[in-house]
Each structure stands twice: as C-alpha cells, then as structure tokens.
C-alpha cells in the first residue's frame, strides 16, 4: 500500500468538494474493498477522505410503503431493520447472504454497490486486465473462468459483478441517489451498473467525486413475497455462482407481477426483463418458469469453464419462482438440510 494522506470529512458537501477537486482522492467508508485493494496495489489513491462521520446512515420506511436508506448505513443494520425484513424480504436475505457477519458490520450500502470484482486477474496486479489497466487485455478469457460471467460480457471483460445487494436492488427498481460537483442526481439501479463493453474500467456513470448518499426503494406490490436464492460451493462466506432475486404476485393462477434479477452470472446485477416479460400473464407453473428461464439465458456466452452456469441459472430461476408459488423452503446456500 502506498503512503496516503487522511482526511476525516465532517460535512457531505465538504467531502464531495475535497474528492471532486483532487483526482487522486478516494472516499473511505467501510474500507472492505478500498483497504483490501489498496494493499493489493490495485487502487492507488494519494488521499483518502473518510466519510464515516457524515450523517448518511438513516434507514426508514416511507409512508408509501417504500424505503430510504442512507449510503453509510451498514449492511448488517439494514438487514436487521424490521421495515426491511417486513416489506422487502429479498433485500434482507441478499444482504445476509453476502460476505460474513464481520464484513457486514463494516461495509456500507454505498460501498457495497461500488465494490470491485473478484476476478483474480483484476486483483493480481501482475496480470493483464482491461478493468485495472485499460488496453492490457483480459486474462480471464483464456484463463480460469469458472466464476466468471455468461451474460453482459464483452471481448474486453467477463468479470462477474460480485454484489448480492445490488441484485436485489435492481429487481426492486431502486434508485441510487448521489451528490456530485454538479449537484444531486438519482439513477435507476438498473442503469447505475454499466456493461463492460470496450471500457470495462468504467463501472458506473458517476463522475469522479460524486458520492452515493442514499438508496431509495419504491413500494412494490410483490416485494413482500420475495426471496433471494444464492447457489455456491461453500455453504456460506462465498460469492454466488448463481443467485436469483425474485418477487412474485400471482392472481388466479397467473403471474400478475414479477421482478427477477440474477447475480453471479453477469457483468452487472442482471435484471431479467426478458423472463419477466414472458411471465407476466402466463400461468404460474413450472413449465412457464422453465420457459422464462430459457428465454432469459438464450444469449448467454459462456466459456468452456463456466458453461454450467447457463443451466444452473435456469434451474435456479425455476427454483426461486417455484418456491415463491409453493411456499416451500429452498435455500441450498445456508447450512445443511435437516
């Protein structure tokens, strides 16, 4: 880790001013990505502006049935909040399936959305990586790519977006609120995460110094009946191979409303709109779920090592939707079945 200077910000505008005016400054919140990658020398800011004292940590339900979360609220606090658990089970489950209890106590909501990919070639400062050093090439394309993406990839990058939280937020049509040198902005979550294309180093539309201040989740009819299903090798403390955030409302045996997003398989938290479009109005049964999953994964572009993810994603989508219609427990990710 290079030497750094440290500035503890006391007000939000001052923090934004400090980072905006200095291209070598980064924000420091929970530190779980920043400090890790500083030590790896993947990130090399000259100055860290500590924003942990800023008043951005509230969690509150809105009268309309939605949710407002401050960017500095910790993952564990949000997951434990009664309003979150009641109105948006998918959000609480996504948060609690991520990382470990210690990391969830540290990591902020804003930082979670900006966490960097787990691609070992990105983390290893010695390997070519277009995301870390644009133009150097993608080592994963011909490398060890079992965990990499099959959707939203490009010839320049196939790193998987690692966040569980973001998958749930994308499914819930959340908005990301920011404050930048040019004022406040709000981005639909689905537009906040950029496909790698030919510029994989650009992961979000924010300009330098723009700070996530909060997340807004609108009231959503099917959200109370929602879940997050995460499939991984280890029973805990591992990033997803495939995950599904799903919310569903069924009226008279037909799908009235559905929200579906995928994690672990795409370069961004992947809103499964094709599957949703297929499902609305369709019978809420296994056949329709299977067809919807097939439609969603039709354009997948796997490598030989991660080809299994296409089928695994289909099956996980079906399992998630079946579980929501059947009211059964279906969580292979945690613990042993009993």
């Amino acid at each position: 880790m290079r030497t750094i200077t440290y500035l503890r910000a006391t007000d939000t505008a001052g923090a934004v001013e400090a980072v905006s005016s200095d291209p070598t400054s980064d924000y420091l919140a929970g530190g779980t990505t920043e400090v890790d990658l500083l030590r790896q020398e993947v990130l090399n800011p000259r100055r860290l502006v500590d924003i942990n004292d800023l008043p951005l940590n509230g969690i509150e339900g809105t009268p309309e049935g939605g949710l407002r979360i401050g960017a500095l609220a910790r993952m564990s606090e949000v997951a434990a909040h009664p309003v979150v658990r009641e109105r948006f089970p998918v959000l609480a489950q996504a948060l609690e399936s991520g990382a470990s209890p210690q990391l969830r106590n540290m990591a902020s909501m804003g930082g979670n959305l900006l966490q960097r990919v787990r691609c070992s070639y990105f983390r290893d400062a010695e390997s070519p990586c277009n995301k870390r050093e644009p133009g150097t090439g993608c080592s994963a394309l011909a490398g060890f790519s079992r965990g990499h993406a099959v959707l939203g990839t490009s010839e320049h990058c196939i790193a998987t977006h690692p966040s569980d939280l973001a998958v749930a937020l994308v499914a819930l049509d959340a908005h990301v609120r920011t404050l930048g040198p040019r004022g406040e902005r709000a981005y639909p979550a689905d537009e906040f995460f950029l496909l790698p294309g030919d510029s994989p180093h650009r992961e979000h539309p924010m300009e330098h110094g723009e700070l996530i201040t909060g997340i807004e989740v609108p009231a959503t009819d099917p959200a109370r009946r929602s879940l997050y299903l995460k499939v991984r090798d280890r029973a805990s403390y591992e990033f997803a191979l495939v995950s599904v955030a799903a919310a569903l409302s069924v009226v008279d045996g037909s799908v009235a409303d559905v929200r579906l997003a995928l994690g672990g398989v795409a370069t961004t938290p992947w809103r499964a709109r094709r599957a949703e479009d297929f499902l609305v109005g369709a019978a809420a049964d296994a056949d329709a779920f299977g067809m919807a999953a097939r439609v969603e994964m039709a354009d997948a572009q796997p490598t030989p090592m991660n080809a299994f993810k296409v089928e695994l994603a289909r099956r996980t989508i079906v399992r998630a939707l079946r579980t929501l219609t059947g009211g059964r427990e279906a969580d292979p990710g945690t613990g042993s079945p009993t």
Binding site: D124, E126, S127, R234, S236
Partner: peptide, 23 residues
C-alpha cells in the same frame, strides 16, 4: 494453474475454498 502463465488461479482464501462452520 493458468496453463499459459503457470500462475495459480485460486491464490487466496476467498478463492481457494476451505470448509467454513456452515459446511
């Protein structure tokens, strides 16, 4: 090993998976 570079692909405890309590 990455066949072309001879570097280990899973050189960390986040990638080289050992059992955790839940396993």
């Amino acid at each position: 090993m990455h066949p072309e570079t001879g570097r280990w692909a899973n050189a960390g405890l986040g990638e080289y998976l050992v059992p955790v309590n839940a396993d």
